[in-house]
């Protein structure tokens, strides 16, 4: 066990883990979307888990830093919050929040992040960006909602590296990047419906259930899920 100082509090953690894990284990919430413990190399793509570490001149993603004994970490400095708010606003400019239909039922990472950062779920001052995607896409047996997807890549990782199915992948590039599959619509392909991808999705963009459009038309059901 080694000790590190986070926001003036000393925490004891096992050696070899990342600063992000150390904080999360000790109840210090750092916004994060793309982190998966089993990745050999941090994906570091969501750009939310910034912290400041003594000795480094600018904020760094805490998922890329291994803990060191005596390390001094600050999670709530102005430069950290500035980058986090900026990244969050960028994500919200392409994310459509529909709390009533959302399978996360309010336990969405984005809502939690907004609360911590004390910002609204609206992208302002940025404008909402239109993406050239369908609202609902079938990925083999999975149902995918691209407007909820933040392209963190957790599903792609667990499907390929952990479950060994390799059903999911990124397709297209840049702003048009989407999660896709080579399996035809509705077919199973190599998918064993293990729902690992559904479980790791931080924003409820993947389900194994029937598309919600049909669901939400039934009166009552949508209201049950709350806001």
């Amino acid at each position: 066990m080694i000790a590190l100082d986070v926001d003036g509090r000393t925490i004891q953690v096992e050696a070899g883990i990342t600063v992000l894990e150390a904080c999360l284990q000790n109840g210090i919430f750092i916004p994060n979307l793309c982190f998966v413990k089993t990745r050999k190399r941090p994906h570091a793509s969501c750009r939310l888990c910034f912290v400041e570490i003594d000795g480094l001149d600018r904020p760094v993603p805490s998922c890329t830093q291994r803990v060191r004994d005596g390390m001094k970490v600050r999670t709530d400095t102005e430069p950290v919050r500035r980058l986090q708010r900026s990244a969050f606003k960028l994500l919200m400019s392409t994310h459509i929040c529909t709390p009533r239909e959302c399978p996360t039922q309010g336990r969405c990472q984005l809502i939690r992040t907004a609360k911590l950062l004390k910002v609204s779920l609206k992208p302002s001052p940025l404008e909402r960006l239109e993406r050239d995607v369908d609202p609902v896409v079938r990925l083999g047996p999975l149902v995918h909602y691209p407007y909820r997807c933040v392209l963190c890549g957790r599903c792609v990782h667990v499907c390929g590296e952990e479950s060994g199915h390799g059903l999911l992948t990124f397709a297209k590039r840049g702003f048009n990047t989407v999660v896709a599959t080579f399996v035809s619509e509705g077919e199973e392909g190599p998918c064993a419906e293990c729902s690992a991808c559904v479980g790791v999705c931080p924003t409820g963009a993947l389900t194994l259930e029937a598309p919600e459009t049909a669901e939400s038309e039934e009166p009552g059901r949508a209201a049950d899920s709350g806001g």
Binding site: H43, A44, S45, C46, R47, L48, S86, A87, L90, L91, S93, T94, L126, E127, L129, V150, L151, G153, F170, K172, R173, G174, F175, N176, T177
Partner: peptide
């Protein structure tokens, strides 16, 4: 650059578009 962004990280993918 926004056309050549790989789409991995938030800032480059969405930020350059803005």
């Amino acid at each position: 650059t926004q056309n050549e962004s790989c789409g991995k990280c938030t800032f480059c993918r969405i930020g350059t578009r803005h």
